[in-house]
Nucleic acid binder design. Structure first.
Lengths: 77, 77
DNA sequence: ACGCATTTGGGTAATTTGGGCT
DNA sequence: TATGTCCAAATTACCCAAATGC
């Protein structure tokens, strides 16, 4: 999957999907966990992450959504 | 029930309700049962649940409250 | 009271998480 | 607000006996 960065900072994929970068805190709220836990997921490779020049982590919204679907909001898997 | 993730990480339902996620322990205290029992409800599809990338479960507060109403106090059977 | 299927909790070990501090 | 580390608490998955419901 190739991503293209738009002037507004979003990522566009070939399918036309627009992708936003989420902070650890945002991802944490999505999963109902502590931000520290999200960073642990990045360290253990459970969630892919991007590093800013100041070593902070950012997460692709599409990846986060995909993980949410894996642990579906419906019946337990 | 379709859920939409807001930028702040909360879940929005069709009714516009904002939702927060509860841990197994919190749900267990609400129903007065063991956390293990809550997870069993998830496994048997009685309660929808979200799975973290580390396979822990989180529960939508609105779903939990809806279940509390279904088995409402005073209307036995 | 009885039998039978279902549900629940106790116990354990391994993994995951959150609080405090930096 | 995010990072990194240590440590106690929470969660998970398993088996098995007690409780529950019909």
């Amino acid at each position: 999957m190739t991503s293209i960065i738009s002037p507004d900072g979003t990522f566009s994929t070939e399918t036309g999907t627009t992708d936003r970068l989420l902070t650890p805190g945002e991802v944490a709220r999505i999963f109902g966990v502590d931000p520290k836990t999200v960073n642990r997921w990045a360290l253990t490779g459970k969630v892919p992450s991007i590093r800013t020049p100041s070593r902070q982590r950012r997460y692709l919204e599409s990846e986060v959504r995909a993980l949410l679907r894996d642990g579906s909001v419906g019946t337990d898997g």
